Amino acid sequence: MQVIEEVLSRIVPTPEEEAKLREVEKELVARIRYEASQYDRRLYARLLGSASRGTWLRYQKDLDIFIFFPEEYSKEEMERIVTSIASRVLKGVEKRYAEHPYVRGEFRGYDVELVPCYAIKDTSYLKSAVDRTPFHNDYVKKRISSKENEVRLLKQFLKGIACYGAEAKVEGFSGYLCELLVIKFGSFIRVLEAAKHFKRGEVLSLRGDVDEKAVRRKFSSPLIFLDPVDENRNVAAA
């Protein structure tokens, strides 16, 4: 379809832009790992999010770097260390707050979020909501190959109708939810075709058969998509 090709030409990064992102990522992660090792050699950093999974939009220059801490660290210690690292690596550092603090700043023209999380074995050991993110990342990366542009199309479509973003001011679809929808249905067009038939309380899952009545008793959202890495979470709960 011509319109899809036109949209893709605007939202898919060029090979040069992709190479630049990887260059910046490599330098940034190396610097953060070095600074983290000055506190504790067990600390390590990873790029997560859409830049890691290859589903980022061309005009979005965002890098989400997670610093992993052993479980004995308190959230106060994590905040102090991450803030200190950010002050030495990033420009224009700002502290933000979610379940626990994280830091925003700029590095070589990219907006960076530096997020502390716990290095846990699996989601049964969750100590904070962000501890799920590495498992989300690994799950999607194993299944999204060759469908990255389908995710980009869905994100751009949702942006066009002001429904993209799970933050409070939007209460829409997160990037992770977009990726799961494409994994489930196979393409942007198939997501739209399926959505035509969604009813309030629609239950979606990538795990096979589920007890939909039990799921609806547990979650009251208009759309329910069970998190494949944590059955106690509804990804579609904005």
Score class of each variant (00 low, 15 high):
I161M: 00
R233Y: 03
S9E: 14
K95E: 13
S128Y: 03
R33Q: 15
C163S: 14
V89D: 02
S84A: 13
A236R: 14
S174Q: 04
K91Y: 06
H197E: 08
G109C: 04
K147I: 05
K91H: 11
F66C: 02
T123I: 10
C163P: 01
G92N: 15
V170D: 00
S220Y: 02
L180N: 08
T55F: 01
A36M: 05
A51D: 11
T14L: 06
F66Y: 15
T123E: 08
F225I: 15
S52T: 06
F225P: 14
P222I: 11
E94L: 13
L47H: 09
A195P: 10
A51S: 15
V130H: 01
S84T: 04
D138C: 05
D230T: 11
A19L: 11
E76G: 11
P134Y: 01
L8Q: 06
S74A: 04
E106L: 15
A45S: 15
G208T: 04
R104D: 11
E79C: 03
E35L: 05
V103H: 06
S146A: 14
V235F: 08
I4F: 07
E72C: 06
E25T: 13
K20D: 15
A30C: 10
P222A: 09
L114Q: 00
E150M: 00
Y102V: 07
E72V: 10
R10Q: 15
L180Q: 08
E23L: 05
Y110K: 01
Y102A: 00
S50F: 00
A51W: 03
Q156N: 10
D211I: 15
D62G: 00
L57K: 00
L180F: 09
K213W: 07
T83R: 14
E106V: 14
K127I: 09
E17V: 00
R46E: 12
T123W: 05
S145M: 03
L48N: 07
V210A: 06
R80S: 12
V151P: 04
A238P: 09
V115E: 02
S37I: 12
T14G: 04
E72S: 04
G208R: 04
K218Q: 12
R217I: 03
R207L: 14
S146G: 05
V215M: 05
V3D: 13
R31H: 08
R10A: 08
Y97N: 09
R58M: 00
G54H: 08
A98C: 13
E6I: 02
S52A: 15
Q38H: 12
L177I: 10
L8W: 05
E27T: 13
S145I: 07
R31V: 06
E202A: 11
E76W: 03
E106P: 01
K127G: 10
E76H: 07
G54M: 15
V170R: 13
N234S: 06
S174W: 00
D40A: 14
A129L: 01
